[in-house]
Amino acid sequence: KELVLVLYDYQEKSPREVTVKKGDILTLLNSTNKDAWKVEVDDRQGFIPAAYLKKL
């Protein structure tokens, strides 16, 4: 599985998104959309803007 590093805090703005903190390391589920990547956070799945993430 692929991991990503969170570069900036992000507060979810819709039910399809998830809230993350800078420095979190998350499982990347889908990065086919260049604008928003799907990740898993504490058994929740949701989207975060790709600009907030860096592949490890």
Rank of each mutant, 00 (worst) to 15 (best):
S31L: 03
S14T: 13
L28Q: 01
W37N: 01
E12W: 10
K55E: 06
F47R: 03
L26K: 00
L26D: 01
L5Y: 09
W37H: 01
K54F: 11
V41P: 01
T27Q: 10
W37A: 00
G46F: 15
V41N: 08
Y10H: 04
L7D: 00
I25S: 01
R16C: 15
L56N: 01
S14V: 05
L7M: 09
T19F: 05
T27D: 03
L29Q: 02
I48N: 02
L7R: 04
I48G: 02
K22H: 05
V20P: 01
K55V: 12
V6N: 00
D24T: 11
V20K: 01
Y8A: 14
L5D: 02
L53F: 02
E17N: 07
E12F: 12
I25L: 06
V39C: 06
P15L: 09
T19K: 06
P49Q: 04
E17F: 08
W37G: 00
R16V: 13
K1H: 11
V4G: 03
Y52E: 03
I25Q: 03
Q45A: 12
P15G: 11
Q45F: 08
T32G: 10
K1F: 12
K21D: 02
V39L: 02
R44C: 07
Q45C: 13
Y10Q: 00
E2K: 10
D35N: 13
N30C: 13
V18G: 02
Q11F: 14
V41H: 09
L7H: 00
V39F: 03
V6K: 00
E40S: 10
I48H: 02
N33L: 10
L53Q: 00
S31G: 10
V18A: 05
K13D: 06
F47Y: 14
L26S: 00
V4S: 00
T27N: 08
K1M: 10
K55Q: 07
A50W: 04
T32Q: 12
I25N: 00
A51G: 12
S31T: 09
V41E: 01
F47P: 01
E17H: 09
D43P: 03
Y8P: 00
Q45E: 12
D9S: 08
E40Q: 15
V6P: 00
P15F: 08
I25P: 01
S31Y: 08
T32N: 12
F47V: 08
Y10L: 02
D35R: 12
A51R: 14
A50S: 14
S14P: 08
G23D: 04
V18P: 02
R16M: 14
L29C: 06
R16T: 14
K54C: 15
K54Y: 12
S14Q: 09
D35K: 13
L53P: 03
I48D: 03
D35F: 15
K22R: 12
D43S: 13
P15M: 09
K1G: 09
T32H: 12
A51Y: 13
V6S: 00
I48R: 02
T19H: 05
T27C: 10
N33Y: 10
V6Y: 00
I25F: 03
L5F: 06
G23A: 02
G23R: 01
V4Q: 00
A36K: 13
A36Q: 14
E2M: 13
V39Q: 00
V39P: 00
G23C: 08
A50E: 05
E2L: 12
F47L: 07
D42K: 13
I25W: 03
E2P: 12
R44Y: 07
G46Y: 15
A36L: 15
L28K: 00
Y10T: 00
E12G: 15
V18S: 02
D42F: 10
K22M: 08
Y8E: 13
E2F: 12
K38A: 09
L26Q: 01
N33S: 11
D24G: 03
E40A: 13
V6D: 00
R16Y: 14
E17Q: 06
L28T: 01
F47K: 01
K34T: 11
A51W: 13
E40W: 09
T19C: 07
L7F: 02
K1Q: 11
E2A: 11
T27M: 10
Y8C: 15
T32A: 13
K21Q: 08
E40T: 07
T19E: 03
D24V: 06
T19G: 05
S14Y: 10
Q11P: 04
K21T: 07
K34V: 12
K21S: 09
K54Q: 14
E17A: 07
D35Y: 15
Y8L: 10
N33W: 08
G46I: 15
K21N: 07
K22E: 06
D24L: 08
L29N: 01
N33T: 07
D9E: 04
K55C: 10
E40G: 07
T32R: 09
L29G: 01
L3S: 06
T19I: 05
N30V: 08
W37V: 02
L5Q: 07
